[in-house]
Design a protein around this nucleic acid. Sequence first.
DNA 1: TCAATTGCGTTGCATGTGCAACAGGAGGTG
DNA 2: CACCTCCTGTTGCACATGCAACGCAATTGA
Lengths: 221, 221
Amino acid sequence: MEKYFYIIEKLDMFKGIGDDLENVLKCLKAVTKSYRPDEILVSAGVKPNFVGIVLKGSVLITKEDMDGNRIIIAEISESGMYGEALACAGVKFSPVTVITPNGCEVLLIDVNHIITTCNLSCKMHSQLIKNMIYIIASKNLLLNRRIDILTQKTLREKLLMFFRSEMERNNSNMFKINFKREELADYLFANRSALSRELSYMREEGIIEYDKNMFKILKNI
Amino acid sequence: MEKYFYIIEKLDMFKGIGDDLENVLKCLKAVTKSYRPDEILVSAGVKPNFVGIVLKGSVLITKEDMDGNRIIIAEISESGMYGEALACAGVKFSPVTVITPNGCEVLLIDVNHIITTCNLSCKMHSQLIKNMIYIIASKNLLLNRRIDILTQKTLREKLLMFFRSEMERNNSNMFKINFKREELADYLFANRSALSRELSYMREEGIIEYDKNMFKILKNI
DNA sequence: TCAATTGCGTTGCATGTGCAACAGGAGGTG
DNA sequence: CACCTCCTGTTGCACATGCAACGCAATTGA
């Protein structure tokens, strides 16, 4: 585990822990575990008690489609966390399967060790709990933002909402986005070519200018 | 506050607290507050530190649309909670306005009093924290389920997903839904008449039978 | 240098569905 | 009974957009 300290100490989960990291991990009975390519970390249907943090490689959160196809809900890469909501909400049967495509190394923590103050009542525990709550609440807000975008009726409205949030983030009407077109389309739950088309229209109408991933918003939107 | 104990003691927030409720509320420095019709509880832009629990009446979570129209995101009625994600994630500026249409009475709790163990380290505090985490994590799962439905491309697929989850909940291929058509349409983010139309098609195709709010699923979906 | 791959834009077509308008039934009220 | 309101279903139309196919430019790799 020690060789991953450089990752672990930077995690939101352990913010404010500092030099006590080793003790805290011991107190939490945290363990690392390796998985081979295509191995399953959490099977759909079983009770998930553990929060997992990816230390190396990546994992996929997947689900069975109605036709039995496996669809990928999310990819969690290094420093990412999975299973926290399921474990903290105490669900009995996981609705998702977590699998690693190319193998991975993860840190596993029983949530009960986090949310139950230990006998030693180590002073860092309170900090851990704050962090945990912060993480889940933030995720909550992210999901809300996603729903905000999803519930826009037209692609134009989704784009405007996206542009507004980017302008806010960058505090400028010019910004570079980190998405490729395909990725942006996925994020907006739209079709790539439809996205291209809509961007063209908006350029024609003098609402935006863009070149590759640089965008400039010309009107108040 | 005492006259609302019958509501408060049943809240998820205070599950497992039992007879210590009064002390716990004191320890949390919880207060009740009344609002007149159309009064604002949380203004967009201010920092929300409080979790609110509706004891009487109801509140609306609203947002300014790009055209300046006020759109309603959610309605919180008696025993409902608002502001927990914003407060726990420590956001600086509330993206939403909370307003009460007809007046209300709410219980306000500073989240810092919840997530920071009090000096007396009252033994119930650990339970409170567990409850808080449980609530936020559960909300998280609800949001995920909503996104699951939202990301279905067609109304047919949304309906199938809804029916599957209802069959699972009721453990039967016959069930009564609690939504009126208009409400179901809202839940699925679809148009009411389009929903009616799709249901008709599905009946024609022999996939479902229904009468009013009773549904029967005839095929493996 | 040639071939393959990736990213992006364009376009024609099919279709899902939002919208508006209307109809009919159930239930409530004067 | 007459009238109103609420809930649901039906239908014609318009339109947004998913999809597939193609072209082009830039990049990568053999």
